[in-house]
Amino acid sequence: MNKLRNYSLAILVTLIAITFNACKKDPKPEVPEEEIGKAELTFLEVEREEHGDHYHYNPISEAKSTIITFDSKGLPPVGTHLHLTEGKTYKLSLRSFDFANREMQQEFLEKHDIHQAFILGAPDGVLTYVYADRDKDNKKINVGVTGYLTVDEHTETGFTFRYVLRHLNPGVKASIMAANWNDINFATKFAGANDLDLKFELHPVHEGAHEH
């Protein structure tokens, strides 16, 4: 019976030791990087030059860029309303920032096999978009960090322009053609999640139209 008491005491001592030595650690704040970030879309007018079955896009020296900023909820400043002009072409560039305001759009290009942007919201025949990204070997890839947006027609009123950068499930990208740039069924056809979903009001106007 003494033995038994010793065993019980041994267990007691062990448990007291455990109780006082093992407690939760002080929590450390984690920055949920994928959930926090800001983004910018820049529109810069370029000259579109026809070369047989494709176009060349040349810089215009005096062109001024328009930048739309988006907060961590993917929203632009209140009242954002952008006019682009019928017949003109714009270089559309994405800058994406992580929680510490470091640029991170290069990550989308490095993993171009699982990323692709879709340009949505425009009525049929109003916009044409061409992907213009290059990988590290300068090979053409379709991601949408850089592209050219041509305004083919003006519209009477503005519409919600939507830039969705898709993080695609493995193997999905192979089924996406450049012509799918404005596929409204992207969520059905191209499984994955969105890294960015940016929306603002765009109004394609004809040349000479007044700002409003």
């Binding site: 993080h167 499930n169 089924s175 969520a187 499984a191 999640a193 979903d197």
Partner: peptide
């Protein structure tokens, strides 16, 4: 693996993987 509500609705409408 789904993201937004839009993704969920789209996947459910299909009911099976397209890939």
């Amino acid at each position: 693996h789904v993201g937004t509500k839009e993704d969920i609705d789209a996947r459910i409408a299909m009911g099976r993987p397209l890939e």
